[in-house]
Amino acid sequence: MVKEIEKAGFTVVQMANLIPVAKTVGANRMVPTISIPYPLGDPSTSKEEQWELRYHRVGVALDALTTEIEEQKVFDVEI
């Protein structure tokens, strides 16, 4: 799916936990998420912590959209 969207000319970033899967599928810009069932907010943490993590990682995804890349790239996250 990510490939079809990129093929159509859109700059796209895939946020996924299983980065090896995203790579194999052919995503070019990738940002890791924390798990499969809750990619952007661990329910065992507080609402504030979940929000901070989500706000940060979505921010990294936005950075990824504005970054020129030469090959498949996984963008680093801090929280």
């Binding site: 799916m1 990510v2 490939k3 079809e4 969207i5 093929k7 159509a8 000319g9 859109f10 700059t11 796209v12 970033v13 895939q14 946020m15 996924a16 936990n17 995203a22 995503a27 998420t33 499969i36 069932p37 990619p39 952007l40 979505v58 995804a61 959209l65």
Partner: peptide, 26 residues
Amino acid sequence: EAARMGKEIAQELQDANVQAVILTST
């Protein structure tokens, strides 16, 4: 099927003048 759906969604996005996409997967 995934490729077909991807294409259809891409078409919609084009028609709506979207320029970039964040795709989240589980």
